[in-house]
Amino acid sequence: MKEFTYARAETLDDAAGQLDETARVIAGGTNLLDLMKLQVMAPEKVVDITRLPDLSEISAEGEGLRIGALVTNSQLAEDHRVRSLYPVLSRAILAGASGQIRNKATTGGNLLQRTRCPYFYDPAMACNKRDPGAGCAAKEGVGRMLAVFGVSDDCLAAHPSDMAVGLRALDAEVEVRSPDSSTRRLKLDELYRLPGDRPDLETTLAVDEIITAVVLPAPEKGAVQAYRKVRDRASYAFALVSVAGNVTLTDGKIARAKLAYGGVAPKPWTNAKVEEMLVGQAPDEALFRKAAEALTADATPHSDNAFKLPMLRRTLIAVLREATGLADASPGTDKTKDAA
C-alpha cells in the first residue's frame, strides 16, 4: 500500500471539505483497502467517515424507509422492517460476500464498490478503467465474469454488487450531499454511468459528493419478492448472473413486475420491454420463455461468457415461476408482509 494521510471527519462539512481528486472516502474499507493494497487505487488522503453522526440508522421516511449510508450490510439484511416488507433486499445482501465482510461493508460503499474484472485488479495489465486510453486486456483475455449488456468497446466489466440489484427492483433512490450542503436524490439508474469511452467514470457523483442515504419507497402490499444468484460455488462468490424480482399478482394476472439483473452489466440492469410483456398477463410458462428471450435479445457477449445468456434466461424463468406461484417457493423467495 502507498502511504497516505489519514483524516477522521467529524462532520459532513468537514468530510466534504477534505475531498478532491487525490482523496477518497473510506467507510467499511473492504473494497478500497483491497484495491489500495494492490495499488490499483492510491489516494493521497483517506477520509474516514465512519464517525459521522446520524448516518448509521434505518428510520421511517414517509411510508418508506431511509437507510443511512453507514448502515452495514448485516444491519440492513437483519432489520425486521426490511425482512418483512422488502425481503428481496435482505436476500440480495445475504447472497453476497461473507458474514465478516457484511459486518463491515456499508450501504454507500457497497453501491460504489468497483468491478472485479481480473485485469482491473492487475496493474501489470492494460485497463482503460484504471488508466484511460491504455487499452482493455479483458477483450482478448479470459472473459468469464464480464458483462453482456451495456458494455462498450473500451470496457466490458460488470458491476459486482448484489445489494444494488435488490435495490433496483425496489426503485430505491440515493441521497447525495454536495459540498454546498445541498442534497439531491438520484434514481439508482442515474447514479451509475455506462462505460462508453470513459470507463474510469463510473458514477455521476462529483469527487466531493458523499452518499448520505438510500431511500426505499412505500412497500407494496402482497408482493412476492425473490433474489436468485448463480455462481461458481455455493457461497462467498460473485454472481455469474442474478435476478431480483418484485412481482404483484391481482386476480390471477401480473399487476406489477419489477425485475433487475446482476452480474451482467456495468450497473444493475433492467429492461422495461420485458416488464411490459408480463404486466396484465396471467402467469404462464410460454409467456416467461418469451420474456426471457426478449431480455437477452440485444446482449453482446464476450467469446467466454455467452453461457450467461441461457443461464440468465433460466434464472429469470425460475424467479417468475416462484414469484407467481407456478412453482413452490425456495429459499430466496418471500411474500411481503403487510405494513403495520
Binding site: Y6, R8, I26, D34, S74, Q100, N103, K104
Partner: peptide, 24 residues
C-alpha cells in the same frame, strides 16, 4: 478478505482484520 484466517471480533462482531485500518 478472501479466507477469513484473520477474523477477530470488533465490539462483538466478526470482521476480517486484514481489510481494516488500525487507525479506524
Amino acid at each position: 478478505g478472501q479466507c477469513g484466517a484473520c477474523t477477530v471480533l470488533v465490539n462483538g462482531r466478526r470482521v476480517n482484520s486484514c481489510l481494516s485500518l488500525a487507525a479506524m
